[in-house]
């Protein structure tokens, strides 16, 4: 498989996944394992590493896979492939959406979609809390992490100017020092 084929494989993965992130994993695994590019065990590593590193899961996984296969050129081909459909499709959608978004009917419609987005974030908060703080119900609760999350939430609610990124850096540093 050459770089163009790699690009097209990841283009296909980007094009046929709606919902992003881990929703891409089944198709990605199928493409990579069925084509003999990776073993199932390597895709497990790919998932672990992609979740541990900053940025979108899909981009991380694509860069990782490309890098393993063909080095930096492969990483570039895979990453460009996975984001190409995003960029092309979204530019067209943005053009229409932004042109019509001021209309009353669109605003009325979106006023019911916005609570759903808040619901999605609530669901993400609860499922990450369950996974990270309660360890998915196995192995007991991670008490220091729960204390840290609660302290972080209180700080966010009381200190108006607190930057989310500063909180991530401080909690990461505290974790590296005290939770290892």
């Amino acid at each position: 498989m050459d770089l163009l084929a790699l690009y097209l494989t990841f283009l296909k993965i980007g094009m046929f996944t709606i919902g992003g992130g881990l929703a891409m994993l089944p198709l990605m695994q199928k493409e990579l394992v069925a084509n003999g590019l990776m073993t199932m065990a390597e895709t497990v590593d790919m998932v672990a590493i992609s979740q541990m590193t900053p940025g979108p899961f899909a981009v991380n996984a694509s860069t990782f896979a490309g890098m393993k296969l063909y080095g930096v050129a492969g990483a570039a081909a895979a990453t460009l492939g996975v984001v190409t459909p995003s960029v092309v499709i979204t530019v067209f959608v943005a053009k229409f959406f932004i042109a019509f978004s001021k209309r009353q009917a669109v605003q009325d419609t979106m006023s019911a979609v916005r609570p759903v987005v808040t619901g999605l974030i609530l669901a993400a908060a609860l499922s990450i809390a369950n996974e990270a703080l309660l360890r998915g119900g196995t192995g007991g609760a991670d008490i220091p992490a729960i204390v840290m999350a609660a302290a972080g939430l209180i700080l966010l609610l009381t200190v108006k100017k607190l930057s989310p990124i500063l909180l991530i850096i401080v909690c990461g540093a505290l974790g590296a020092i005290f939770l290892r």
Binding site: A149, V170, C171, G172, G175
Partner: peptide
């Protein structure tokens, strides 16, 4: 350890 801290921050 760093990831445990970061996950806590993300939850908050």
């Amino acid at each position: 350890g760093a990831l445990r801290g970061i996950s806590a921050a993300v939850v908050a």
